[in-house]
């Protein structure tokens, strides 16, 4: 039984912004299906009343005071940019506003 089809993998890859090539899809889809099948065993383990654990330590209310700290300079901020322009980060055309 297949949990994860080749199409599913292609779809999820696009959700993750990875443009897989066909030969990659061929290779990854089978492996992922096997892995998903295996991790799926977890479904039957925990009862509904078990609380989920998102953090290993029970810390709460860790905050900082609203005090300004030095920022990077514009030059530092843009130092690794593939396409800086006029103090800003150049990016390809954006399809639509969020």
């Amino acid at each position: 039984m297949s949990n994860l089809s080749r199409d599913d993998v292609a779809h999820v890859a696009m959700l993750a912004r990875i443009q897989l090539e066909d030969h990659e899809l061929d290779r990854l889809a089978g492996q992922l299906d096997q892995i998903v099948d295996w991790v799926g065993q977890i479904n039957e383990v925990a009862a509904a009343d078990v609380p989920p654990m998102s953090h290993p330590l029970p810390l709460v209310n860790v905050t900082r005071p609203d005090e300004v700290r030095p920022s990077l300079t514009q030059q530092q901020a843009l130092a690794n940019a593939p396409d800086p322009e006029g103090g800003r980060f150049g990016v390809p055309r954006i399809l639509d506003e969020e």
Partner: peptide
């Protein structure tokens, strides 16, 4: 209108030069 950003100490002043109020966190 806090002095700093939600998750880092960068200033929030309006109208600053571009990318001068950024740090590793907010970048």
């Amino acid at each position: 209108s806090t002095a700093t950003k939600m998750f880092c100490g960068c200033a929030t002043e309006f109208g600053a030069e571009p990318n001068t109020q950024t740090c590793p966190v907010c970048l």
